[in-house]
Design a protein around this nucleic acid. Sequence first.
DNA 1: GCAACGCGCAACCATTGGGTTGCACCTTCT
DNA 2: AGAAGGTGCAACCCAATGGTTGCGCGTTGC
Lengths: 138, 138
Amino acid sequence: MTTGGGTEPDAGRAPSGDAGRGSGAGGGSGADAGGDAVAEVLSALADPTRRRILDALAAHGEATATVLAAELPVSRQAVVKHLGVLDRAGLVTGHREGREARYRVIPERLGVTARWMDRVAAAWDSRLSAIKRLAEGG
Amino acid sequence: MTTGGGTEPDAGRAPSGDAGRGSGAGGGSGADAGGDAVAEVLSALADPTRRRILDALAAHGEATATVLAAELPVSRQAVVKHLGVLDRAGLVTGHREGREARYRVIPERLGVTARWMDRVAAAWDSRLSAIKRLAEGG
DNA sequence: GCAACGCGCAACCATTGGGTTGCACCTTCT
DNA sequence: AGAAGGTGCAACCCAATGGTTGCGCGTTGC
């Protein structure tokens, strides 16, 4: 089993695979295939500011970029950009309400990614113990 | 309830005790306290090449930067740098054997991060349902 | 001892990406 | 209608970072 564990979510990636999903689509709910969704989540989560945004967003339940920017050390535009990334990763969703754009968090993808990560960790574990067995002349 | 859920790993929480391990050859060795261990893992995992390296490494059980570079589309030096990052994140460890420096993966941190992520997802979930209840006049 | 292999360090380049500012456009309130 | 509040788009800046090449040095093997 070559890449059995599969640490790489993009395995068999499509170079031009721009999912291009919009916000309101409620995409978070749909059962994702897995694929590069995990990769997107990982890189989205890699940024500290983005994590803080998610944190604040989860705390508010629902909030606008302006509100979020007010309690973060960055401009509204920065927040907007981050929300864009988070949306593309399927971690948040936004809908327009009158003159404001409210966002909220979507737990789904995070759970999926957590499970993926757990699987990989388990795979590493078994791989390591298998190798250990071999090394010990088992 | 400020940062109740705590999406931010650096927020002052220490995940399970870090397996105090140092690595040798990589250079730098991960000496992080453990609070931002999750953050380090996330940013380490954010890079595709790094994920492929981890994948290849897990498949080999143990390998040198040269070997890894041979099956990846990057130079040995690039691999070395990545291994440095991975080492600092506590995802791999390396030891010198004669004239070669062999690396292997460490499942621990990945598991820790997976659990952290799961907790956050759960927190988001309960927050959302709580808000939903309120909204429905419950 | 000498050549070959492998590693680590350092300099350097190009791109990405987080952040800011400025501006035009659409709602809401008076 | 007009002012105020809020969003979205675009241009621009700068630091971080992934990647490369070149070189010196320890290790192994002939």
